[in-house]
């Protein structure tokens, strides 16, 4: 499935873009599949202390399904305040 990713903070620098088209080799991808594929394509992301994936503005867990038209965002460790 082809998805569009939003990236922020250091993730934006790792991807060299705040928005990225990305292919996951599955028709029913999960968040964990996206993580694996991302880490294979951008090994730098594994050096982060952690990172989350958000689906439609909510933190997602590993088994959550990604569907077409979801808004997917890569959330590196937050540091507001």
């Amino acid at each position: 499935m082809k998805i569009s990713l939003l990236a922020f903070g250091i993730a934006k620098e790792i991807f060299n873009s705040g928005k990225l088209d990305f292919e996951i080799p599955s028709e029913t991808p999960t968040v964990d599949m996206l993580r694996n594929q991302l880490e294979a394509t951008f090994p730098e992301i594994k050096k982060l202390s952690s990172y989350m994936i958000a689906i439609d503005n909510e933190y997602a867990s590993g088994n959550d399904q990604i569907r077409e038209n979801n808004e997917i965002a890569i959330i590196p460790p937050v540091s507001g305040g």
Binding site: I10, A73, V78
Partner: peptide
């Protein structure tokens, strides 16, 4: 929890806080 990020800028470089 809130997706806001800050980068510290120094005289000799910069760093995203908590990233690593």
């Amino acid at each position: 929890t809130v997706p806001i990020w800050k980068k510290e800028v120094f005289d000799d470089g910069e760093e995203w806080v908590s990233a690593h």
